[in-house]
């Protein structure tokens, strides 16, 4: 049962490409691979713990004020992550700018708390949170991989395309500037959804 909870959000029930949650931050931090990895890790941690905490409180939270309670728990975890990033990875935290704070309003987190943590025990909720964070991370890393490779010719900051290939050095190659621009992230996610729905025919909309 735990295995199923863990495997499904990775591809079959992916939070980004199937449930359309958390698009906001998924697209803005994917110009380079490194911030995308950090962002994926932060979201996974926040989601795992917020799911587990809310799930262990689920019988004591009054239904009417649950949104505020959820926001406070998530905001607390995000503040912790933000402070840790500022202390140990200052450069990346500058690149992510406001998007660390925006994890609070990331719809995946609220969505999983509402849909899963409020009805399940803490351990499955923790696994569900981590698995959904990883599913989100897969899309993030895939988009960032293509954008950095084609847009800057590098991965994780290491130059992959040899410098002598470039036109300015007398070669034949030029980076595709379109991949650096924000709209390309949307088009890439659109293409991922296209590929996934060609494989999983039951997801096709009428």
């Amino acid at each position: 049962m735990y295995k199923k909870i863990f495997i499904e959000p990775l591809f079959k029930n992916n939070p980004v490409s199937v449930l359309v949650l958390g698009i906001c931050s998924a697209l803005a931090v994917t110009v380079k691979l490194e911030p995308a990895l950090v962002m994926a890790l932060s979201v996974t941690i926040v989601m795992g713990f917020s799911n587990a905490i809310i799930s262990s409180l689920r019988n004591t939270i009054p239904n009417r004020i649950r949104i505020i309670v959820q926001l406070v728990v998530v905001a607390m975890l995000v503040i912790l992550v933000d402070q840790v990033l500022k202390a140990f990875a200052y450069e990346v935290s500058k690149q992510l700018s406001v998007f660390v704070g925006l994890i609070i309003t990331n719809c995946i987190i609220m969505g999983r708390i509402e849909a899963f943590a409020l009805a399940n025990k803490p351990l499955p909720s923790l696994i569900d949170g981590i698995a959904n964070g990883l599913g989100y991370g897969i899309i993030l890393v895939a988009v960032a991989f293509f954008r950095e490779l084609f847009g800057s010719g590098s991965l994780m900051g290491y130059q992959l395309i040899p410098a002598s290939w470039y036109l300015k050095n007398g070669g034949f190659y030029e980076n595709n500037g379109l991949f650096i621009l924000p709209p390309m992230a949307l088009i890439l996610v659109g293409v991922f959804i296209w590929v996934q729905r060609s494989i999983q025919k039951e997801l096709i909309e009428k």
Binding site: P183, I204, E205
Partner: peptide, 23 residues
């Protein structure tokens, strides 16, 4: 629209193209 692209997929691509226009 091609069947697997219907709904969500084509919407993403349209938003991307609108974004390029806004650039």
């Amino acid at each position: 629209v091609p069947a697997p692209l219907r709904g969500l997929g084509i919407t993403f691509i349209v938003v991307g193209l609108m974004g390029i226009a806004f650039m």
